[in-house]
Amino acid sequence: MTSLPSEPTGKKLGLVIDLDVCVGCHACVVACKEWNTGGYGAALSDQQPYGAEVSGAWLNRVHSYEVTPDRRDGVVIGEAGDARVVHFPKSCLHCDDAPCVTVCPTGASYKREEDGIVLVDEDKCIGCGLCAWSCPYGAREMDLAAGVMKKCTLCVDRIYNETLEEVDRVPSCVRTCPTNARHFGDLADPASEVSRMVAERGGFDLMPEQGTRPVNKYLPPRPRTPLAASMAPAADDTTDATGFFGWVDRMLDRI
């Protein structure tokens, strides 16, 4: 059934991604591919995996951006010095108003009422690709070998899997992140750790203007000291030298 749940979903399971902490190591990308190529549904195929034009279906990708501050009049200032690099992991945001669900002609694409996870029933998918067209975030990629649409399942086969240790019952990307930039939880519960994080740090939606109401939130990079302030002082500036070296400095000045 590709109508969205009529009531708000009981839980809103999703990710909170901390753009201040992510170092762009791509460990989550690889962990995601590894888990999901042997987990839910068809394997995540690659085309020409050992050829020159290698490509394949991935459910999570990390972009890297350069953000250059601009004045209010739109003029870009402070070229290299004040620009900062932000690593930006992107996967399905499990939107409340998921356009990928309602456009599906077969009922393969659906949003679960109990926890809000958006999934594809691959036995019903005809591989028309319309859901990927409807997603402004590029969260869906066609598996060219199986001819069905693939997307992040929020590791639905891990998070409820009681054969795993409790610590492992989180999405693979969250479990593997070495810098703890990825967090998993229920964003419908204001007392959950992820909801508190979003409230404290001013977590935001991607492309709110698209009206998709994403569940996943992103935490902004923290304000940074300007590069000029943390630069090594000039070699002949000894104004703050104290103690023995201060005495040496003063003595040598007199000679």
Binding site: L19, V29, E53, V54, S55, G56, A57, W58, R61, V62, H63, S64, Y65, E66, V67, T68, P69, D70, V76, A83, R84, V85, V86, F88, K90, A132, P136, Y137, G138, E141, M142, L144, F204, D205, L206, M207, P208, E209, Y218, P220, P221
Partner: peptide, 24 residues
């Protein structure tokens, strides 16, 4: 708006997530 980083400044891709092209 796609990255939510507009409050810092102008956003430009520094490195793409993959070297060859993909489905998207």
């Amino acid at each position: 708006s796609a990255t939510g980083l507009g409050h810092i400044g102008k956003v430009r891709q520094l490195e793409p997530p993959h070297m060859t092209d993909n489905y998207l």
